[in-house]
């Protein structure tokens, strides 16, 4: 077969990929989707001293902060399954969150003033996460004391699980929960990230 005589090949060459132009069209699409109220989840990926963070927001508020090792594709698929597949990389909705995180990592912000969508945490885990905001910047609390705060002193392990599955790490400060023996305990962003956050807050 003569390759010059392949219509698909000739036609595809006539309409080459135009990544920059598609990028512009994508921006137009996200703007229209936002205006028309059909963008259920907007996300963006930002840099931070503890690595890349994926930020996702519904029209209620910030719904997910994910560390890069969680695998962004898996995180987005999970948001698609649990909330809505109408998801676009649309940075504008995350401007405030990105700015506040920048300020936090620069040591200029101690509390986050962001609307949060807490729908990804339910039941006792949700209760635990709500109480984490009572631990002040620079302070730590033990898993046992958070269990007491949450109204179930025996549920120390469940507090650990709630922290390990926190959909909004950093913003909801599960990194401030440490073991009773004074050691740090685990962290879903990695122990090194937890150490950095605690050091930042006591600096």
């Amino acid at each position: 077969m003569n390759t010059h005589d392949d219509p698909a090949r000739v036609l595809l060459r006539a309409f080459p990929d135009t990544p920059a132009h598609l990028h512009d069209l994508h921006d137009r699409l996200t703007a229209r989707a936002q205006t028309d109220g059909v963008l259920d989840i907007a996300y963006r990926i930002v840099d931070s001293p503890i690595g890349g963070l994926l930020l996702a927001a519904t029209d209620v508020g910030l719904v997910r902060v994910a560390f890069s090792h969680e695998d962004y594709d898996a995180v987005l698929q999970s948001l698609s399954d649990r909330i809505s597949p109408r998801i676009l990389d649309a940075p504008v909705r995350l401007d405030a969150a990105a700015r506040e995180l920048d300020e936090y990592f620069a040591g200029r912000r101690r509390t986050f003033d962001l609307p949060l969508d807490r729908r990804l945490a339910r039941g006792f885990r949700r209760t635990v996460l709500l109480h984490l905001s009572e631990i002040d910047y620079g302070d730590t609390a033990t898993y046992a004391s958070v269990a007491r705060l949450s109204g179930n002193p025996k549920a120390v392990r469940a507090v650990g699980t709630a922290c390990a599955t926190n959909p909004l790490p950093v913003v909801v400060p599960c990194h401030r929960v440490v073991r009773s023996d004074g050691t740090m305990g685990g962290y879903l962003g990695g122990v090194e990230a937890k150490r950095m956050l605690l050091a930042l807050e006591t600096a």
């Binding site: 309409f15 598609l22 948001l79 399954d81 597949p85 676009l88 990389d89």
Partner: peptide, 25 residues
Amino acid sequence: QPFVRRPFEQVVAIHGPTVLRVCRA
């Protein structure tokens, strides 16, 4: 098998170039 629908962003990334070619043609 869990019901899987890709995030729409992936639909745009995967099919956007082809749809643009078709529209141009």
